Computed example of a mutant assay.
Amino acid sequence: MDLMEYWFKTRALIDNLVEDFLKGSQDWEVMEMSKYIMRDGKRFRGTLLFLFNEALGGEERDAYPGALATEILHSASLALDDIVDYDEIRRGMKAAWAVYTNRKVIFVSNYLIPTALKIISEYGDKALRISVDLWKDTAIGALKDMYGKEDEYIRVIELKTASLFKLPAALSSFSSKRREYLDSLLEVGKDLGIIYQIIDDYVDCVTQEREKLVGSAKQLYSLTSGRFESYVRLKYSAYKEHYENLIKSLPIKGELLDQLLALPDFLAFGLMGEAGIKNKIF
């Protein structure tokens, strides 16, 4: 099974977990808004948890809580980001705030976030503490994304994006009962998250006018004075190499090792392909 097949299989599984979670809501209006916020996600982050859990010898069912919680947190973060950025479209449809109003989406997000953390607590206090810290990092990153300096670019994207890649990687050490690899997995998640955001910002710089760039994409453009291709190429190669060395240090079996090593390119080419731009940097 290649990465695309694995992702399709796991995305369907996560969609079922999300559906079951939403059915358990006691309040109809909360359920409807939560359903809208969590609709049609790519489920990349939840897929990472399943992939790392399996690679470390864990049972699939033990990854269910972490994958669900990761997707809840990610969806809530996007709903809040859309409010801050005044983005009216998300995943080809109206953003949640444009349908339900800012206030309602903020209230529902404030319901979803602690609910996800409670689910994570099934893995124990340490898993919960790490998850709370990573969510705090995400919040700080969102602030720096709007108001940070261009020379903080890498730190900004580590906080705002890589934190929610660190989360599933870290939780896989708990679901697989291989906690001795927690620190390495946090680093793995950081590398993947930075790679993802660098390429996402690269796509924005290529496809949007300079005046329309916001957040970390604007920081990338300013940091490089518009010559972002060579910078992105350099950083991508460095983080990919670090990621590969970390993966090779983990006790992962053959086929899954190949899949994990292919993840950086899978994410990068997926983002560029989705945007319809040709590969100019690899």
Rank of each mutant, 00 (worst) to 15 (best):
M93G: 05
S237C: 08
S109G: 15
G66K: 12
E211S: 14
M146V: 15
L68Q: 02
A162P: 07
L192V: 12
K94V: 11
A268V: 01
L112R: 00
I72F: 12
V108E: 04
L13F: 15
S230R: 11
L13Y: 15
A98S: 15
V214S: 07
D201H: 06
E54F: 03
N279G: 06
K253H: 09
N110H: 14
K104S: 11
D183T: 08
N53F: 03
T70G: 05
I195D: 00
E152H: 04
K248V: 02
F266W: 08
K218Q: 07
P251R: 07
L73T: 06
R155Q: 10
R39C: 04
I194E: 00
A12N: 14
V108H: 06
L22G: 05
M1N: 09
D145T: 07
D62K: 15
P264S: 04
Y243M: 04
K42Q: 06
E71S: 07
E244A: 14
G24Y: 00
E209K: 12
A55K: 02
T207R: 03
E122L: 09
S230P: 05
K126D: 12
R43W: 04
K280H: 13
S225P: 05
D151W: 14
V188E: 00
Y86S: 12
I195M: 05
E274I: 07
D87S: 15
L117I: 05
L186P: 07
C205A: 12
Y6R: 10
Y181A: 03
D82R: 01
K118A: 08
G57N: 01
E187L: 09
S121I: 00
V232E: 00
F44E: 01
V108Q: 01
L192G: 04
E54T: 06
M146F: 11
Y6D: 08
Y236C: 08
F165C: 00
A170D: 00
A142E: 15
K278N: 13
L80K: 00
N53C: 12
I106Q: 04
C205Y: 03
K23T: 06
Q208V: 07
P264N: 04
I199T: 11
L49M: 07
L117F: 10
E209A: 13
A162V: 12
T138A: 10
D15L: 09
Q197K: 11
D201R: 04
M33W: 02
I113Q: 07
S25C: 12
G215C: 05
S131C: 10
P264W: 03
R11L: 05
L220G: 05
D137I: 10
A268Y: 09
R210A: 11
L48P: 02
G58I: 01
G124T: 05
L261W: 06
E29A: 10
S176N: 04
S222R: 15
V156H: 01
L263E: 03
K190D: 11
I14Y: 02
E88I: 14
N279I: 13
Q197C: 08
R43E: 03
A162H: 07
A217K: 00
S172M: 06
E54L: 08
L246S: 05
G141W: 07
D87G: 15
D125T: 11
G270V: 00
S225D: 13
L223P: 01
Y236N: 05
F8C: 05
V18K: 11
K166V: 02
G273V: 01
Y243S: 06
Q208H: 08
F52N: 02
I140M: 10
V84Q: 11
I119L: 13
F52Y: 13
